[in-house]
Computed example of a mutant assay.
Amino acid sequence: MNSISPNLNIMIKACEKASKVIIRDFGEIENLQVSKKGPRDFVTKTDKKVEKILIEELSKSKKNYSFITEESGKIKNSNEDSCWIIDPIDGTINFMHGIPHFAISIALRINDELKCGLVFDPIKNEMFYAEKKSGAYFNNHRVRVSSKTNLEECLFTSNSDGVKHATPQLNMRNTGCAALDLAYVGAGRLDGFFHNNINIWDIAAGVLIIDEAGGKVSDISKFGDEAINIRASNGNIYQKMLEITKNF
C-alpha cells in the first residue's frame, strides 16, 4: 500500500460509506424496472442521499472547505480556495436501467490546482485514485496510461455525438460514465477520451488520474466549471486524436 495523504484517506472513507447506499438501492432497481412509475424518482433520491453522506463525511475534518456538487451546485464555506468537487453517481442512466457501470467521483481542488482525485465503482469494487506528484493507483497498485501508438489498436470513448463524429476513424465506445472512462484511460484499459460540454464534477478526479498516470489532458482551466471541452489520452496518440477531433 502506498502512503496516502489525510485528505485522500477522508475521500476513501466517505466513498466507502456512501457506496453502501448505492449498492443497496441498486439492488432495488430490478423491482422498479417493471413498475409503471419507473425508477427515475428513486434514482434522484439515491443521488441526493449519496451526496448528503459525502458532504457530511468530507466536512467532518475539513469544516471550512467549500463544495461544487452535481445535485446542490456550489456550497460556499469560509475557505473558498479549497473545494471538494463531487459527483455522487456519475452514470445515473446506467444505474436507472440496472446496468452496473457507474461511479462516485470526488476531487479536491486547492487554489485552482487539483490535488487529489478518486473514482470509485462500488459494484465492481474498483477504486482509482491519484494525488498531485504521487502517481495514479488502481486498488493500491500503481497504474500508467497505455503505450500504444497505432490508432487501429486503440479504443476511445466519448458521448454519442463524439462516437458519431469519430467513427470509423477511431474504435469508439459510449459507456455512459465519463468518470470511469477517464479512470480507465489512466489505468490503460482505454487509450483516449474526448467530450464537449461536460461539467467539472464528471471529470475533475479523472483528469488528475490521467495526469499522474503519465497521460496527456487538454487544458481545462480556460472553461470554468461547466461546458468544458476535454481531450485526454496517452501521449503517443494525443496529437493524432486532436487531429481527428479538431472539428468536433
Rank of each mutant, 00 (worst) to 15 (best):
C116E: 15
A14R: 06
V119D: 04
A14V: 00
K45G: 10
T245G: 02
A183R: 06
I104K: 06
G38Y: 07
K216F: 14
S158L: 01
S78Q: 04
M127V: 06
A103L: 11
I123M: 12
I10T: 05
N247E: 15
G224R: 14
A204S: 14
T167H: 11
S19I: 00
Y137M: 10
A187M: 06
D90G: 15
I55C: 00
L114T: 12
K148G: 08
N197S: 09
R144M: 15
Q169T: 10
N77H: 01
K45Y: 08
K133F: 09
K20D: 05
T167I: 11
A18L: 01
N247S: 15
T44G: 03
P39E: 00
P122N: 12
K20V: 07
I75F: 12
K74Q: 07
T167E: 11
F248N: 06
E70N: 02
L114C: 09
K240H: 09
V43C: 05
G188I: 07
L151D: 04
S233F: 04
E57L: 00
N236C: 10
K124M: 11
L170Y: 05
D225H: 13
A183V: 14
K246N: 09
A232F: 11
N199M: 12
G214P: 06
E70I: 02
I198H: 02
I75G: 01
H97F: 13
N159D: 15
M96N: 14
P122T: 03
Y184N: 15
D112Q: 10
T167R: 10
V163E: 14
V43P: 05
L58P: 08
S221C: 07
T149N: 15
L242A: 06
K76P: 04
M96V: 03
I29G: 02
I53L: 03
R173A: 14
P168R: 05
N64D: 05
G162L: 06
N199H: 11
A205H: 07
I68T: 00
S5K: 01
N125A: 14
G235S: 15
H141M: 12
S66T: 02
A14Y: 03
L108H: 07
V185D: 05
I200P: 11
V34D: 11
E152R: 13
R173G: 04
K148W: 13
K216Q: 15
D47C: 05
I237Y: 01
R173V: 12
